[in-house]
Simulated assay, not measured.
Amino acid sequence: MTALPSPAGPVAAVPSPAEDRAESERLAAGFVRGDEESFALVYHRWAALVYSLAARSLGDAREAEDVAQQTFLAAWRGRHGYHAVRGPLPGWLVGIARRKIADAHAARSRRTELASAHAAREGSGVPGPAERPEAALDRVLVTQELRKLPPVQRHILRLAFFDDLTHVQIAERTGLPLGTVKSHARRAILRIRRSVTESSALVE
């Protein structure tokens, strides 16, 4: 399955209650069977709903986009767990989205705690070896370069470095083949490393 487009881009409006129920059921049935065309239509129809929920909760467009991607990838991977008798497909997707949003908040809290712990250790105000100006520059460059990566590579590195997931866990979460995950991670790291090295050389 190819990478999903950005849910923040031009997608169909959220369907109203008057939408044809038979069409929704047909899409859900195709989705559960593993029909990729049905999956694309499901994404096109409800991505805006999932994205808006994530954006309102997280207050960050990039994080909301990541959550929407994770939601639909998780839904595709676990599609056999959907049963129409328990409720419509959009409600099931929202349930997955809420769990992914909670995960994003938890990851954000962990990053904040780590930053606070680091600040406490460096409370003396005397820069240690890890806080030399070159290291600070590297962190800025890495952050900037991360934003330039293609969405799939950026998402994989965030899962690896911010959520502490292994390549196997990333493959399970995203539904991507393990070899694809490793390839994306390797290319992204090489690109960042090359950029940091080149930029650091300019200030020497």
Rank of each mutant, 00 (worst) to 15 (best):
residue 2 T to I: 00
residue 2 T to E: 06
residue 4 L to W: 03
residue 4 L to H: 12
residue 5 P to M: 06
residue 8 A to R: 14
residue 11 V to Q: 00
residue 12 A to H: 14
residue 14 V to A: 15
residue 15 P to G: 14
residue 18 A to S: 11
residue 18 A to D: 11
residue 19 E to Q: 15
residue 24 S to E: 14
residue 29 A to K: 13
residue 30 G to H: 03
residue 34 G to Q: 06
residue 34 G to Y: 03
residue 35 D to K: 11
residue 36 E to V: 13
residue 36 E to S: 12
residue 37 E to G: 15
residue 38 S to G: 08
residue 40 A to S: 03
residue 43 Y to M: 05
residue 44 H to C: 10
residue 45 R to Q: 12
residue 47 A to Y: 03
residue 48 A to C: 02
residue 52 S to R: 14
residue 52 S to G: 07
residue 53 L to P: 00
residue 54 A to W: 01
residue 54 A to T: 14
residue 55 A to H: 01
residue 57 S to R: 05
residue 59 G to P: 04
residue 61 A to M: 00
residue 62 R to E: 04
residue 65 E to M: 05
residue 67 V to H: 02
residue 71 T to A: 11
residue 72 F to K: 00
residue 75 A to N: 02
residue 76 W to L: 03
residue 77 R to S: 10
residue 80 H to G: 11
residue 85 V to S: 13
residue 85 V to F: 13
residue 87 G to C: 01
residue 90 P to K: 05
residue 91 G to S: 01
residue 94 V to P: 01
residue 94 V to L: 08
residue 95 G to P: 01
residue 97 A to K: 05
residue 98 R to T: 06
residue 99 R to F: 01
residue 100 K to W: 04
residue 100 K to G: 01
residue 100 K to N: 12
residue 104 A to T: 08
residue 106 A to C: 06
residue 108 R to I: 08
residue 108 R to H: 12
residue 109 S to R: 10
residue 110 R to G: 02
residue 110 R to Q: 06
residue 110 R to A: 10
residue 113 E to P: 01
residue 114 L to T: 10
residue 115 A to S: 00
residue 116 S to C: 09
residue 120 A to M: 03
residue 120 A to W: 04
residue 123 G to Y: 13
residue 126 V to W: 08
residue 126 V to K: 05
residue 128 G to A: 05
residue 128 G to S: 09
residue 130 A to M: 05
residue 133 P to F: 10
residue 134 E to M: 06
residue 136 A to G: 10
residue 147 R to F: 04
residue 148 K to L: 10
residue 149 L to R: 14
residue 151 P to H: 12
residue 152 V to D: 09
residue 152 V to L: 13
residue 152 V to S: 11
residue 156 I to N: 05
residue 158 R to S: 15
residue 159 L to T: 14
residue 160 A to D: 14
residue 161 F to C: 00
residue 163 D to N: 02
residue 166 T to R: 01
residue 166 T to D: 09
residue 168 V to L: 04
residue 174 T to H: 08
residue 175 G to N: 08
residue 176 L to S: 08
residue 177 P to C: 06
residue 178 L to F: 12
residue 179 G to R: 09
residue 181 V to E: 01
residue 183 S to Q: 09
residue 185 A to P: 04
residue 189 I to F: 12
residue 195 S to F: 14
residue 199 S to G: 00
residue 199 S to V: 05
residue 204 E to D: 13
residue 204 E to R: 15
